[in-house]
Write a protein that binds this DNA or RNA. Structure first.
Length: 375
DNA sequence: AATACGGGGGA
DNA sequence: TCCCCAGTATT
């Protein structure tokens, strides 16, 4: 196997040298501790958790805000879960945020605040899987550990000419992990593994790979056989479920009703405006008059002054929502108080609540909507 | 082994 | 529009 990469030390040296010349300034790498010249493992834990299924450019501003607010593992361990979620809102996969906080608590209690440097220990930390554990060991501590992410899957698939897509094929994925373990050097592990990923992100692109400037093109079987555009193949398609949601921004005395979602499932424990699923008999019309009657029935409320705010699509990986957002007021007589899961908040207070992205988008429309309504 | 879990980038 | 992104946990 190893012979197919050519001389392994040559491959390693070419990749590390290329990475050291080409690497980007990333906040979790540039802020190093003076003595050790290694990044703060806590920051590696935070950044690698944010980077799961998320592109680097998206993560950077979230990372800055997060470590600014929670600069140490102790600070995060003592944090309020809602505040952690609030800093995470918009980034997606919110269980990552919840588990990262639990991870900090575990590290404080069991490891006296020091992020473990052993794979077996890291795998017991909430939200830390094989990839993140390998990243912390190799990038945080510069110790040998394999690392496989979406980039490495693509790079190794081409180097070794693996013809199935490892994202659909557990056997191929296992092969790639073994390969990643076989190629990681004993020294310069951080730059080697970072280089493997950076290569996938900038050179070994999904489409139109830039083989002409690839530092390890001499080691690539896909290029040698002219199959770099066909490897890896595209994944199997997934079914996209279409759903509709009506969102009611109910206003009373310049405050809006919000409700907390259940602690499990999508957007767990986040807050939202009252959301109802229109039945199949309800048409998609924007006509307000029939809609108001339907709203009152679905929401079980006496609403008035219903006005359309916006209609927009929101796509997730497996679902395609069409949100229709309305602004309305509560009839004078109606009573609706605050409970543990339901509150009336001003627009200013709303900023402190973690909201799903579609509801955050709707919230941005409310200031002008309120003016129109009172005019 | 299959599914759930967000949102955005880029062609 | 489609595929993917510095994956993990649950069922």
């Amino acid at each position: 196997m190893l012979t197919m990469l050519g001389l392994l030390p040559t491959f390693q040296r070419r990749l590390v040298n290329w990475y050291r010349a080409a690497r980007r300034d990333l906040p979790w790498r540039t802020e190093r501790q003076e003595k050790s010249k290694l990044p703060d493992p806590y920051r590696v834990l935070v950044s690698e958790t944010m980077l799961q299924q998320t592109q680097v450019a998206t993560v950077i501003p979230y990372f800055q805000r997060f470590v600014d607010r929670f600069p140490t593992v102790h600070a995060l361990a003592q944090a309020d879960e809602q505040e952690v979620l609030q800093l995470w809102q918009g980034l997606g996969y919110y269980s990552r945020a919840r588990k990262l906080r639990l991870a900090a608590q575990m590290i404080v209690q069991q490891y006296n605040g020091r992020v473990p440097d052993q794979i077996e220990q890291l795998l017991l930390v909430p939200g830390v899987g094989r990839y993140t554990a390998g990243a912390i060991v190799s990038i945080g501590y510069d110790q040998p550990a394999p690392i496989v992410d979406g980039n490495v899957i693509r790079v190794i698939s081409r180097l070794d000419l693996i013809r199935t897509n490892a994202r659909d094929d557990p056997g191929a994925l296992k092969q790639i992990w073994l390969r990643a373990e076989a190629v990681v050097p004993r020294r310069n592990c951080a730059d080697f593994n970072s280089g493997l990923m950076e290569l996938g992100a900038t050179i070994c692109l999904r489409r139109n790979p830039r083989c002409a400037i690839c530092p390890v093109r001499a080691h690539c079987q896909a290029l040698a056989t002219g199959q770099q555009d066909a490897v890896p193949p595209v994944r199997k398609k997934k079914i996209l479920e279409k759903q509709r949601r009506w969102v009611l921004c109910i206003e009373r005395d310049k405050r809006y009703l919000i409700q907390q979602r259940p602690a499990r499932g999508r957007w767990a424990s986040m807050w939202q405006f009252l959301t109802v699923t229109p039945g199949t008999e309800e048409s998609t019309t924007d006509d307000i008059t029939p809609a108001l009657a339907v709203m009152n029935r679905l929401a079980g409320l006496k609403l008035r002054s219903l006005r359309l705010l916006s209609r927009f699509d929101h796509r997730l990986t497996h679902r395609h929502y069409t949100f229709t957002a309305y602004h309305c007021r509560l009839a004078k007589k109606a009573r609706l108080g605050a409970t543990q899961w339901q509150r009336w908040v001003s627009l200013e207070e709303l900023e402190q609540y973690p909201l799903p992205q579609p509801h955050r988008n709707i919230a941005q429309l409310l200031p002008s909507a309120a003016e129109d309504g009172s005019a």
